[in-house]
């Protein structure tokens, strides 16, 4: 983000804590994500990255702290989480396409079922989104006939059909064969260029470096370092981040 003025906070996370039994997964984590910003979170497995991401749409419940999406406390009394989730697209490591439906119905299910669009509108929108991820010819195919990269592009298109203002990516390329990583990252790059607010948990350092506005390093349930990609990768200060980068780069 170049302009400091008039930046809307899309996601505000404050003092988030989460533990499973005795294991503390998130320890007093705070983060503001601005409108149109692309934030990448990197770090070793088990460090709490995915849990943090899943707290933003309450797929994971947290023990304390607050999450605001568009200024709305998502855990406040009387808040319908389903309404909030419509505005937050999520892409999963294992795609999670609905296996009992073809691609088109995967995309149309939520918009039609939630009566956001009529069937015709939803179909037109779905075809547009499929075209956007380069898979318009696959609309009648079932998920098990797609490659990993195609599945993930469909999953992105499915999330986009809800016209979300925020997209969360949970290691979107980790389950892909190496030759398919590129096509998914390409779609994500385009989304970022279009001004989508994105939070991406990833192991793709190159993607983080070139597409992110801000990169964060999470380990042990805390953000240990944050910064713009150049300084983050160029001059890491935290010793654990230095170790981590040495291993992965």
């Amino acid at each position: 983000m170049d302009t400091e003025a008039c930046r809307n906070v899309k996601i505000r996370v404050q003092h988030l804590c989460k533990s499973y039994e005795k294991l503390e997964v998130l320890r007093d984590v705070s983060l503001d994500v601005f409108e149109g910003e692309v934030v990448c979170i990197i770090g070793p497995s088990g460090g709490g990255k995915s849990t943090f991401l899943r707290c933003i749409n309450r797929l994971e419940e947290y023990n304390s702290g607050t999450v605001y999406v568009d200024g709305q406390n998502i855990s406040a009394k009387g808040v319908n989480i389903n309404t909030i989730r419509r505005n937050i697209g999520m892409v999963f490591q294992h795609f999670n396409l609905f296996n009992n439906m073809n691609v088109l119905n995967n995309l149309m299910l939520a918009p039609v079922d939630l009566k956001i669009y009529s069937k015709e509108e939803a179909k037109a929108l779905a075809m547009k989104m499929l075209d956007r991820v380069g898979l318009a010819d696959k609309s009648n195919v079932y998920p098990d006939q797609l490659s990993g990269g195609q599945k993930q592009r469909v999953a992105i298109a499915r999330a986009l059909c809800m016209r979300p203002q925020i997209m969360l990516f949970d290691e979107p390329t980790s389950a892909l064969d190496p030759e398919m990583v590129g096509e998914v990252l390409e779609v994500m790059r385009e989304l970022a260029a279009d001004g989508m607010t994105m939070v991406v948990v990833t192991h793709e350092m190159h993607f983080a470096r070139e597409a992110a506005d801000r990169v964060l390093f999470m380990d042990d349930g805390q953000f240990l370092e944050a910064g713009d990609p150049d300084s983050f990768f160029g001059h890491p200060k935290n010793s654990r981040l230095q170790d981590f980068l040495k291993k992965v780069l």
């Binding site: 749409n57 989730r85 419509r86 396409l97 939520a110």
Partner: peptide, 26 residues
Amino acid sequence: DIGQMEAARSLGLPYWRSMQRVILPQ
């Protein structure tokens, strides 16, 4: 797979609709 329910819920579908449309058919 639990991911099927999570994907449905992440799109804003309520629990029972997710059950009906995604989980039970499978």
